[in-house]
Each structure stands twice: as structure tokens, then as C-alpha cells.
Amino acid sequence: MAHAETHDPNTPLEYRSETGRLNILGFWIFLGAEIALFATLFATYMVLTHRIADGPALGALFEVKSLLIQTFLLLTSSFTCGLAIHEMRRHNVKGLMTWMIVTLGLGLGFLYFEIQEFLHFIHEGANIGTSAAWSGFFVLVGTHGAHVTFGIFWVIMILIQVARRGLTPATSAKVFISSLYWHFLDVVWIFIFTAVYLMGMVMQHG
């Protein structure tokens, strides 16, 4: 593996191969497209947010407690994912694995509370077909939740690969890319927190 490596020994593993560097840059470009994807869903939601037909208003069903639990689970998972990359750059495979598994656990916790919340909304008479506003809500927040679900499976596969092959320029680039994806999901959540939940509750009370 270390043959013909003329790099600075401090260069992180994920940046040592041309493929690794290009894949990481390519993933940043992909994230730009993801921003545009979520922007269309945010636009749809914000245009339709008052079109509640005969269903309940969005802000009337939002609960601060459930919102904060989800927000802190995802925010903390983004932090522990960052710690995992920090450990990876110290060539500490055990540290990387530990923090990534914590990250996955927090991600699963987030999904649990999100699904609980969706079930609660449906129980209160707001499902995806209730009104244009609730369609916009479930499609936007559901797309984010689907991304988190996909991310959990993806990271598990990459961790299996790291366990089998160890940290190489190839596997570390994959871990780094999946970490960018995971942080990005928290960035999207910040805007869901603000534009959907906080705005919904402000419009309801104010």
C-alpha cells in the first residue's frame, strides 16, 4: 500500500489517492445538487403551508418536546460523526468505529422519534392526503427521513468494509464521503427545524 507514496506523511489517508481526492470533490458537487433538490421541496412546502383544507393547521400539532429530542439527537450525531473522522485522521480505527456506531445509534434514535411523531400526526387526523400543507410537510420531512435511513445502511456497509480491509486510501475516502453526507443531513434538518417547525408554531401563536 505504501509503495511510491511521495506525499507529506501528514496528508490524511482519504486525500492520498487521485481517486479519493476526485470522489470527495465529486461528492461536494453532488451535495450542491442535493441543496437544489431540498430547495424545491422547501419551496413547495412554504407555498402550500396555509392550504390546510379541512384538516388541522400545521402549527397546531407541532410539539416542542418531540422537536427538541429529534433536533438534539441529529445534532449530536453530526458531532460524533465529526469525532469519528478526527479519530480516523489519527489512524485510530477503534476510535473511528466507536464514534461511528454512536453516530448510527443516535441516527436510529432520531428515526424512532420522527416515526413516532408521524404516527402521532396521523392519529390526530393529519396524513399525507389530508391537505396540500400536510402533503408538503410529509414529502419534505419524509424525504429527509428517507435520506437518514439510507445513510444508516450506507455507513453500516462502509464500516463492515473498514473492519475487513482496514484503513486504506480507498476505505478512508468512503468513510469521509459518508461523513459529509451525514453532516449534510443535519444542515437540512436545521432548515426543517426553522422553516417548518419554528415558523409553523410562530404562525400558529402569533
Binding site: T11, G20, R21, L25, W28, I29, G32, I35, A43
Partner: peptide, 28 residues
């Protein structure tokens, strides 16, 4: 990704352009 490289600038430019597109789509 490399010393003296410019991938950081491409990344920042790409994210800022993404943010611009997002703001135009949503506010528009």
C-alpha cells in the same frame, strides 16, 4: 485535498452557488 490545491475553493463556490439556487427557488 492537496497542498497548494484549489479543491477548497471549488467546494466553497459550489456550496455558495447551491445556497443561491436554494434561496432563489424558495423566495421566488
Amino acid at each position: 485535498s492537496r497542498k497548494g490545491g484549489f479543491s477548497g475553493r471549488i467546494q466553497i463556490g459550489n456550496v455558495l452557488f447551491g445556497a443561491f439556487v436554494a434561496i432563489v427557488i424558495v423566495i421566488g
